[in-house]
Write a protein that binds this DNA or RNA. Sequence first.
DNA 1: CGAACATTTGATACTATTCAAGAAAGGTGG
DNA 2: CCACCTTTCTTGAATAGTATCAAATGTTCG
Lengths: 234, 234
Amino acid sequence: METRVAINVLRDRLKKLEIFRHLSESETALLLENLHYKELRKGNILYREGCYLNKVILLFDGVVKQKKCGSKGKELIIRFAKGGEILGFRSFLTEELACATAEVMEDVKVAYIEGSCLTQLMKSNSNFSMIMMKHVCGELSATQTFILNVAQKTVRERVAEGLVQLKEVFDVDDDCNLKIPLSRRDLANVVGTVPESVIRMLADFKKENLIEVNGRRIRLMNIQKLTRIGSVAM
Amino acid sequence: METRVAINVLRDRLKKLEIFRHLSESETALLLENLHYKELRKGNILYREGCYLNKVILLFDGVVKQKKCGSKGKELIIRFAKGGEILGFRSFLTEELACATAEVMEDVKVAYIEGSCLTQLMKSNSNFSMIMMKHVCGELSATQTFILNVAQKTVRERVAEGLVQLKEVFDVDDDCNLKIPLSRRDLANVVGTVPESVIRMLADFKKENLIEVNGRRIRLMNIQKLTRIGSVAM
DNA sequence: CGAACATTTGATACTATTCAAGAAAGGTGG
DNA sequence: CCACCTTTCTTGAATAGTATCAAATGTTCG
């Protein structure tokens, strides 16, 4: 499934990403040498929870879900990554085993980057280092907020918030349909519940005219109210 | 409540900390110039959720709890920090508002470090930068694991795991008594439930001869079993 | 078409929270 | 040092929210 891509096309792509935009020519060149381009289809696994990572994955395009497997086999989706984001950096850096499995949700274009190369760049370019640091800090912040949600909100609140958050991450089309079609199971795994409960909530929201459901297409009709429900301002 | 401490005492303390051990003499000197020593008693707030932080707090000694306030006023303790750890770094770096309140649990000796000073050190010393990065990554890792716990485990499981985790963080004395005495409310806020539920679980564990309870002193009598309950290997 | 999988609905069981009320502990001021 | 007040802890009973289970219906795809 590997695809040939001209090196200057890759260079252009790198230059467009916030993370790598500020690298010098020689640094970009170094990156390009240590980079392995690939295209993968839905369902493929980029890496598995428990694996050792010596590469970091740069996502040019597509969507990846990072899921963690709970003790009873129930999975929890801890993050969706889309174009421009990086995967596996934390595991690589701390040299811990990957704490999540990364699975392709929408066909992706990725680059596997040699971890040592990133380390080198961070050591030599303190600005780049800072950018990466901020990245990780941002993720930490999001994760800590996420905890409060799962810990204290009801399923109703979490589903409402989940929908709004999906809108933030993946945007909606002109009709306010979520651009990413998720199975009920995935949606359940995002908000930490079971598919049945998600279905009931969606049915409720439909009755309340907050959403319209058409299979996996969900149209957000009253984002404000959904947000309110999700933030428990009710 | 500020206390005078000789500068070479401070220098020695810094040198003992993993984070700052590898700084050069001049870097340590810079740090000492930008550092403000303080001792604070239990109950004091180091900083509040929602505040802007331009300083980072270095904890020499004592215990601090970081709590987040949930939407219904219920708080959740997301981390205990003890000697050698740093607080507020993430908020400072991303220039976001503090996402948690830091409250003293056991009298602390801290140093407020000018954030700009840390930034400077990170820019000039890539090793230091890496150490800080790993620190943040480690926190991220812990937080992501924590999510699974609150999201999928029962109260029984979470309390069991909470006890074991407290042992890891704060250790136990010769009799396996947890060295940190927590109120039922705090314990509840750690595992994401209400005090009543914690009490019932502690009572259960007592019946099962897993723990001994004496007010706020909790003695872990069967750590293995508690661990098993907490990890749901049952 | 049939098999596998996803969605939906209803009935049921269970866990955990809430509420209320009393007991114990800790702190304060006379 | 004791009486009083406040807070924390504990227990029981009622309730609400979710998960689980089972079964029916839809959907997808080889």
